[in-house]
Design a protein around this nucleic acid. Structure first.
Lengths: 156, 156
DNA sequence: TTAGGTGCAAATTCTTTGCACCCTG
DNA sequence: CAGGGTGCAAAGAATTTGCACCTAA
């Protein structure tokens, strides 16, 4: 994630905020900066800790409120199975997800030809289309080897 | 969802259970039957209520345990943004999802040409591939019209 | 018979909310 | 300066767990 890219995202943030008339506070800026520069898909808690390092007084609930606000504004998206907390994803780039059915691991990958997907007309009837992603599910390497008899395979 | 299809799913269930050496209890059977015959993507609570009608003594925690067990066995998958409770999806059929970024609405759609997606080699490195789905995100009709200033757009 | 499964209720964990003060626009 | 935004602490949900009894294999 290079700096110019982040700047670009921040610019989008500013205009989206102005457009919708919401205030651009120090906290919101830092929270967005944090998630926008992340290659991961952090949970609210992870974002909270990271932001707290730079802005010691932020509270977890502000992080939640901001994350949902960004979601409503279409600047980030929520991701996949939750397992342990909702994950937030800085929208943008054309990337896709690989998810482990068992442990919830998430990996991104880029797809070249996949961008050209032709969606059925029915989809337009549901609403607007902002993002099209491919989701691949399976068992990750770790989970493939370990074959628990019955119990706890999740928390891992 | 026709009866033959459900029978087919139940057959898969039995063999998967036998294979892994887990017991096929009355509760598990009913829980699976419930979700397998659903066209929706019910939350644990919805499944619980439906099953309870036929099996008055089941407990919510058994539903959770069973759902996760089925998930680990690869018989169902967890779905999309959680918003209000994890949703479970009876894997099988080639269907895809439309998700509303704001309210979490989920709609299925079938894709013809999409089955032929060519996945990048990198994906195989993550683990096995069991399901490939397309996820389309946008704002559903309802959310497109209502444009809340700042507050609550989610709970809707 | 016997390990795994279930129900119950309590415990956790994640997320949201009410309120008084603060800061952006 | 005004109204949205924030932090704090407490409330609310959703999900999980310990334990003693029950049942499929």
């Amino acid at each position: 994630m290079d700096a110019a890219d982040i700047e670009h995202r921040l610019a989008r943030l500013r205009s989206a905020f102005r457009e919708r008339g919401v205030k651009l506070t120090h906290q919101r800026l830092e929270i967005f900066r944090e998630i926008a520069s992340s290659l991961e898909h952090p949970t609210a808690d992870v974002v909270f800790r990271a932001v707290k390092a730079r802005l010691p007084t932020v509270s977890l609930d502000t992080v939640y409120r901001t994350l949902w606000l960004l979601n409503d504004l279409g600047l980030v998206a929520t991701l996949g199975p939750r397992k342990e907390g909702i994950r937030f994803d800085p929208n943008l780039g054309r990337h896709h997800h690989y998810l482990c059915l068992r442990c919830g691991l998430v990996r991104d990958f880029e797809g070249s030809g996949m961008a050209a997907l032709r969606l059925p007309a029915a989809v337009r009837g549901f609403g607007s289309v902002r993002v099209v992603q491919v989701e691949v599910r399976g068992l990750c390497r770790r989970c493939s080897s370990a074959q628990p008899k019955t119990k706890k395979a999740r928390k891992a």
